[in-house]
Simulated assay, not measured.
Amino acid sequence: MRQSNTAAAILADGKEQLMKAGREPHAAELFLMDVLGLSRTQLLIRLREPVGEDERNRFFAGIARMAAGVPLQYVTGKEEFCGRLFTVTSDVLIPRPETEELVLGALARAGRIWPAKGGLKMADIGTGSGAIAVTFKLERPDSDVTATDISSAAIRVARENAEQLGAEISFLEGDMAAPLAGTRWDIVLSNPPYIDPEDKAGMSDTVTGHEPHGALFAADRGLAHYRTLAASLPDLMSDTGLIGVEIGHDQGSAVRELFRVAFPAAFVEVVRDINGKDRMVFCEIKQQ
């Protein structure tokens, strides 16, 4: 390890440690920015300045965790989603850009279907960190948002994010759509577990070793929760409604068919993400 205590020196050491462990070295720069509370531009300006002992210790402790495979977001305890910082712990999945596309796609469709309607009842099934529910509520304040999760620990994280970001949301604990029974919903969004357990061996240990498996994997080649949603949502949706789910890149046809059967008169489409992969299925239900 280099003897200098400048930001440049400890950053170089951090990158070297991550590279030796087979990890992404750029994470060292992102983490140092977080430790010092600086933007990238500010860090570049201050690279020759010394870093205090407490900050150095915190930095190298975090580097050691990342070298062992802990994701950067679990080390910092936060991740950005649609321009807002969300608290994340190992009890919830780390929000990802693909899920941002699901929310933005839902907001665009809701704006077209209900351009002026207030009081839209929206549910986020399997909320995790609350990223979907909180973002929808803040972008569409006139909506009445409820978030569910089977994990009480996840609900605690989601509730904390809602409070920190000023989003008024109701939280219900339970499996999939079960807590939503007895009410009609205009919009239902979900990013359910959808990875085939058979694919686990080929995944990074930063994911399989640290993110909650209950939020990652699903039986029936990853389709189990879509079958549950397709079976339960017809009794819960309003006459005019919108369902949006995130999917695996090879599940588009199967999930689309599940919702076509469940909602024969609906318009069901598979939507690709920014990388050109099938990533979302939207089901627009129209009053007959």
Rank of each mutant, 00 (worst) to 15 (best):
M1T: 12
Q3Y: 13
Q3F: 12
N5V: 14
T6W: 05
T6M: 08
A8K: 12
L11I: 06
L11H: 04
D13S: 12
K15V: 09
K15R: 14
L18A: 10
R23M: 10
E24R: 10
H26T: 15
A28I: 05
E29T: 10
L30F: 10
V35C: 02
G37V: 10
L38V: 07
S39Q: 05
T41W: 11
L44Y: 15
R48E: 14
E49D: 13
E55T: 11
R56T: 07
N57R: 14
R58H: 12
I63M: 04
M66C: 06
A67G: 08
V70E: 09
Q73T: 03
Y74L: 13
V75Y: 06
V75W: 08
K78P: 13
E79T: 04
F81K: 00
C82G: 04
G83Y: 00
R84I: 08
F86S: 01
T87M: 11
L93E: 05
L93N: 02
P95A: 03
P95M: 01
T99D: 00
T99A: 01
G105R: 07
A106V: 01
G111C: 07
G111S: 07
R112P: 08
I113M: 12
A116W: 15
A116G: 15
K117D: 11
L120Y: 02
G128C: 01
G130A: 05
I132V: 06
V134A: 00
T135Q: 00
T135M: 00
F136H: 04
E139D: 12
P141W: 04
S143E: 00
T146C: 08
T148I: 06
D149A: 08
I150S: 12
S151C: 08
S152E: 12
V157L: 09
V157G: 06
E160A: 15
E160L: 15
N161Y: 00
E163V: 15
A167E: 07
E168L: 14
I169L: 09
L172Y: 09
E173V: 11
M176Q: 04
A177H: 05
W185P: 02
L189G: 11
Y194P: 01
P197W: 03
P197H: 04
E198L: 14
T206C: 10
H210D: 03
H210G: 02
P212E: 10
H213C: 05
H213P: 06
H213K: 09
A215Q: 02
A218L: 12
A218M: 10
R221E: 14
A230R: 00
A231L: 12
D235P: 15
D235S: 15
L236P: 04
S238A: 14
D239C: 11
D239F: 12
D239G: 07
T240L: 06
H249S: 13
Q251K: 01
V255S: 01
L258A: 03
L258M: 06
F259N: 03
P264Y: 07
F267W: 12
E269D: 13
V270R: 00
V271G: 01
N275Y: 03
N275H: 07
G276P: 01
G276I: 00
G276E: 01
D278R: 06
D278Q: 06
M280E: 04
I285G: 03
Q288R: 14
Q288A: 13
